[in-house]
């Protein structure tokens, strides 16, 4: 009886799209919120894929409910942050249709390297606490998996390399005529002009080869090893998913007294496969995607 009533509460909760928080919930009454909350990222994957029941118990692969399309539609509709008016119903509906259609359903797999964790962290750098962003992805080692650092965004590094176009855009394509260079006869003069080149620190990257790319992860590790940077704490965590063809979504933790809480989709975009690499660069390098920095 207890399980049945819980089941009913959660089914109703999951069908609710309002996501409005109830008021004055007591300890006992709070259970339905816990039940409905997407408590771990693991549960986000399982609900998205339709691999567990309403109480979080995993289905065996022989269970007829395992990855069942109707159940997935219901689950996924409550995996969006329903208070985010920016994700319109038609867009969400189209996404749900794409991933749950009977003919070619799409599932998430955490053992892939095309989803990223974004950690907004605080580091101590030059005696001040400063925001920094780490990006991690999954990697295989032996028979297991692990999270590994994929990229670092740190404003002082970006500022130092302001001459570099991180997105490979028009600025790089049309290198202006006044760009400095070491002329092709420099070898005849023992590269005596190199000293001048190395005083032009603002433009020093322009002396580097075409294939040169600044690697902020290396710089970050270098600064840690030198003792110039010290990791303090994680402030915020979210995830970027590129696994579904022609779609991108972001998953963040929504902490509120509601049946629509926990790890939820907080951004959803149609992105052609050919543009996903640009989006990834945007997320990694564009300052709009990072904590504000004050020197």
């Amino acid at each position: 009886m207890k399980t049945n009533s819980k089941f009913l509460v959660v089914v109703l909760a999951l069908f609710s799209t309002s996501g409005v928080a109830a008021q004055g919930v007591t300890y006992d009454e709070g259970n339905e919120f816990i039940l409905a909350e997407t408590k771990q990222v693991n549960q986000f994957f399982r609900r998205f894929n339709g691999e567990e029941d309403y109480e979080g118990k995993r289905f065996s692969t022989n269970d007829p409910r395992y990855q069942q399309a109707d159940m997935r539609r219901m689950y996924i509709s409550n995996l969006f942050d329903n208070l985010d008016a920016g994700m319109v119903d038609s867009l969400k509906g189209s996404f749900i249709y794409t991933v749950t259609r009977e003919k070619d359903p799409k599932f998430l797999n955490h053992r892939r390297n095309d989803w990223y964790a974004q950690l907004d962290v605080i580091i101590k750098y030059e005696k001040k606490e400063r925001p920094c962003t780490l990006f991690l992805k999954m990697e295989r080692e032996n028979m297991g998996t692990k999270w590994v650092l994929a990229n670092v965004y740190f404003k002082p590094f970006i500022t130092l390399f302001k001459g570099v176009d991180f997105f490979g855009g028009a600025a790089q394509a049309s290198v202006d005529e006044s760009s400095p260079y070491l002329h092709p006869k420099s070898h005849e003069i023992n590269f005596i002009n190199l000293k001048k080149a190395f005083t032009r620190l603002d433009e020093i990257e322009k002396y580097a080869a075409n294939e040169y790319n600044p690697d902020f992860l290396t710089l970050f590790i270098y600064e840690l090893k030198r003792g110039n940077a010290e990791f303090l704490e994680v402030k915020n965590l979210k995830f970027h998913f590129f696994q579904i063809d022609n779609w991108y979504f972001e998953v963040s933790k929504v902490n509120r007294k509601s049946t629509n809480s926990g790890w939820l989709i907080t951004e959803l975009m149609r992105v052609a496969e050919k543009d996903k690499e640009i989006l990834r660069k945007y997320i990694f390098f564009h300052e709009n995607n990072h904590l504000p920095y004050s020197p």
Binding site: R112, T145, G168, G169, E277, I278, F284
Partner: peptide, 29 residues
Amino acid sequence: LFCLFICGLIIVDGMPGIAQGAGEYFEEE
């Protein structure tokens, strides 16, 4: 912001160094 950004972008090879792969799947015991 991203839509505005993507509209004005020309893609070229040789982006800054990012360790990545194209959706590689890992089997696990």
